[in-house]
Design a protein around this nucleic acid. Structure first.
Lengths: 222, 222
DNA sequence: ATTATGAGATAGTAATACTATCTTTATGAA
DNA sequence: TTCATAAAGATAGTATTACTATCTCATAAT
């Protein structure tokens, strides 16, 4: 049995579906590399085009601008993460076990997913950590939200919120706690590797971040 | 008695000290307005120059680029916040009361500080919420950190971490909890006003964010 | 045989992110 | 009064960015 994981993306994020063509897949694959390497600010379609031996105009046929491309790949990540959470919590009855699994999946360095040939999930994880919030920290966030560009992120947050409520139906802040876990799983990782004074962890020690988040969450929901 | 609050800024952040001249103060004052109005991405020195009837080249005499200017104003904010925390916790013995005050100062909409004539603290608070993390989410964060550009942020985080440890000396994650509170005070505010599905709060309701953070923190440190 | 699609090639434009230089104006010390 | 100097206005120029437009060409479906 051979399976290919296909995540359905919001059509308004692209002009031409990158999953449908060779160049499209190369754009996704290499943009993840180039953004990860130089950062989103230094990333341009021209440099990406040089990297894949295509042309700037060719990339503009797929994406209106680099911000749409960032929203595309971050959306893809959140959908993929929700899918992984679904898989790993199937048949798990205990919501506490589920929530621990969620924290681990959010925080731990990812192994490359063989079901998605052209996407390097490890690089993508790094992009989410360092660039992810730039997808919504803009003046057009409300317009983008109306276009449903953040649906995968919100769905994930809702899902984690539900698990929190399963653990403790009386807890008053399931959605805020959920977004706090999601953001902090990434920010604490960024801090420990770049601004260590802001954390209690040593470089590249995921397990401590997991322990911190578990302690925080289970104290809050008792 | 007339006092003027002067915050000592890292000299490497600017080329010419904006506090020392009229144009300099106008640059700070108006950049806070223009960044708040159009967002940091759309902000350019040319537009700022038009806004203050000066020239692009004139602004470049003060700041190397717009990112340094962003780090300048965010640094200023963190220093000002630490000062306010200091003032509001003077003579307070109980660390729990102190920590509650910190959460309130971090979260609540600010009233304009009369001691700093040319800075609108309310606008500045909005910039911290929407643009603050862009100051460090870059590929040159480590180099910037070596230049001590994030010292005010780290000092604030250390200060809050100390109060956390006063509350519970056995708590294992004072610095991470501190950076979590600081970031979430701002992110939850951004979410509730722009992506409400990610929170449990209604628009512009600071008090709920404060209640959430207090619950989170005091559960964690017992 | 025709037509549509993907994509390479090339050109052009307005705005951005600077750097350089020259002049004017205000201040204050010799 | 003269002279020096610092702040800032005025102007020009450059490389890069962020696009848009058009034309060609290969392939594949009808």
């Amino acid at each position: 049995m051979e399976l290919q994981l296909q995540i359905k993306m919001n059509k308004k994020l692209f002009l031409r579906d990158p999953e449908q063509t060779e160049l499209g897949k190369k754009i996704i694959q290499h943009s993840i590399e180039v953004i990860n390497k130089n950062g989103f600010e230094a990333f341009t379609f021209k440099k990406l085009a040089e990297d894949i031996n295509s042309t700037e105009a060719g990339i503009y046929r797929y994406f209106e601008n680099k911000h749409k491309l960032l929203m595309y790949i971050t959306s893809w990540y959140w959908s993929w993460l929700e899918y992984r959470i679904m898989i790993h919590t199937l048949n798990v009855k205990d919501p506490v076990v589920k929530l621990k699994k969620v924290i681990q999946l959010l925080t731990a360095t990812v192994e490359d997913d063989i079901n998605t040939s052209h996407i390097n999930e490890n690089n993508l994880h790094q992009i989410i950590i360092a660039e992810g919030s730039k997808a919504y920290l803009t003046k057009h966030v409300s317009a983008d939200n109306k276009d449903q560009f953040f649906k995968p992120y919100k769905d994930l947050c809702a899902k984690v919120g539900e698990i929190i409520q399963e653990c403790n139906p009386a807890y008053k802040y399931p959605k805020s706690l959920s977004s706090t876990i999601i953001e902090m799983a990434h920010f604490q990782n960024f801090f420990m590797n770049n601004l260590p004074a802001l954390t209690d962890f040593g470089k590249e020690d995921d397990t401590k971040v997991i322990a911190y988040l578990e302690d925080l969450v289970f104290s809050a929901i008792k």
